[in-house]
Nucleic acid binder design. Structure first.
Lengths: 228, 228
DNA sequence: CCAAAAGTGTTGACTGTACACCCATGT
DNA sequence: ACATGGGTGTACAGTCAACACTTTTGG
């Protein structure tokens, strides 16, 4: 400990924070969770949820904690995105941020009550407010990574409920990749991956023909051979 | 500054170091640069070059500095790999490392003289010595990233001299991807990318038919549509 | 003249893409 | 009965992978 602090003094180690980009799909839009800052700097400005590390906490665990505190979601994978440490990114001095990102099904989100000072809210990526610090950059970067991640992994499962229709699956891809996909080709290709299976259920209650419900065989992150 | 230090005390911010995985190809092998540690902990054990940040230095600049100090190479791109901050990765206490990686043509490397305490040496990835800290993991991770990077970027240019033969290019791919490639298919595919052009030179001095020399049209990192 | 790497095309298999109609339900 | 999204197959084009022989030089 003494040695560690010696280094801090000698080498001016920056302070370390963790921020988390929490994505979800609501309606037909990709959204990211933002909180309104209650403290200076950037008081009342929207920002990614985040903060300084707790004692003996890794950045990964901090990200999991923040996700739980702000969105009420547990047992979800977070992935390290990038470490941002440009000089001047935080007016308080040398503060770096190890940023994580994650995908959450909209239904699973439960905002805590009574957290009056920091109101979390999902914002569409197409209409973001002014963001604190360099968070605009961070969101843009996370957005890109998310899209490319979709192309060679099965992460889409973490955006969908346990059971889902093929249309929902396809919509998720279309929203994130930001382009239309062909229905028949999409079904063929995705079924061939062998990641999902039919369930006995149907989605009724819509005004149309009921859709068949599928589920992922495994809900663990995996790399795929290839995809889009 | 006062606020920054307040946070450090309150939140136990870890100390920050930067390590760099410097890859090159020598002969027919992929190698990574290691230094023998002159200080505790892990004194006399091999490790990736790295260290604490200097005053007002970003991790990126630290990586560039380390690359220059240890390998005598300037004007090279370094890319952030990952931030490692597991508890217990450094016996001195809470020390995280923001790791960068880079590719350097073997010819460009100039070791500084008189740096007696820390002897840099390229080690084949197939025969690594015991490594300090979690550097074994780091090297493995960097190795993977390098291979996948090769498949969708033009980074291979940073492993080759300005002018090079098609065989050298292909060897670089074969060594990093760790598999044989078909000569005719490789030439076709790579030429189609339009990244390189013929020069007037030939590589003579070998015992065989002289090979034509190519060069990259641009030596900036770019993303490709697709590749392997 | 021999050894060694350089250089060069074609074919068949596979993969990706474009495209249009009938079906089952709720209102 | 009709409006709405659910569900299905085929054909053509483009890409990928396999494969063998001739050329040029130095020794």
């Amino acid at each position: 400990m003494i040695i560690q602090n010696m280094h801090r003094v000698l080498y001016q180690s920056p302070a370390v924070t963790t921020d988390v980009a929490i994505f979800t799909i609501v309606g037909e839009q990709l959204k990211v969770l933002l909180v309104r800052r209650s403290d200076r700097p950037f008081r009342n400005t929207w920002a990614l949820p985040g903060g300084f590390l707790h004692k003996n906490e890794t950045t990964n665990l901090a990200a999991v904690r923040i996700l739980s505190e702000k969105a009420g979601v547990k047992n979800v994978f977070v992935e390290q995105l990038y470490t941002f440490d440009a000089i001047g990114r935080d007016p308080r001095g040398r503060i770096m941020s190890v940023v994580y990102f994650t995908l959450v099904p909209h239904q699973d989100i439960k905002f805590k009550k009574g957290d009056k000072t920091q109101t979390p809210l999902f914002w569409s990526l197409k209409k973001l407010p002014k963001l604190a610090f360099d968070h605009k950059n961070i969101v843009t970067y996370a957005r890109k990574r998310l899209a490319s991640k979709l192309e060679y992994t099965n992460v889409v499962f973490s955006l969908l409920p346990k059971k889902f229709t093929f249309s929902q699956l396809q919509k998720a891809y279309e929203i994130i990749l930001d382009r239309k996909l062909d229905k028949r080709n999409f079904r063929k290709k995705f079924l061939l991956l062998g990641l999902i299976k039919l369930t006995r259920g149907l989605l009724s209650g819509t005004r149309q023909r009921p859709a068949r419900l599928y589920e992922f065989i495994s809900r663990k992150p995996e790399e795929l051979k290839k995809f889009f």
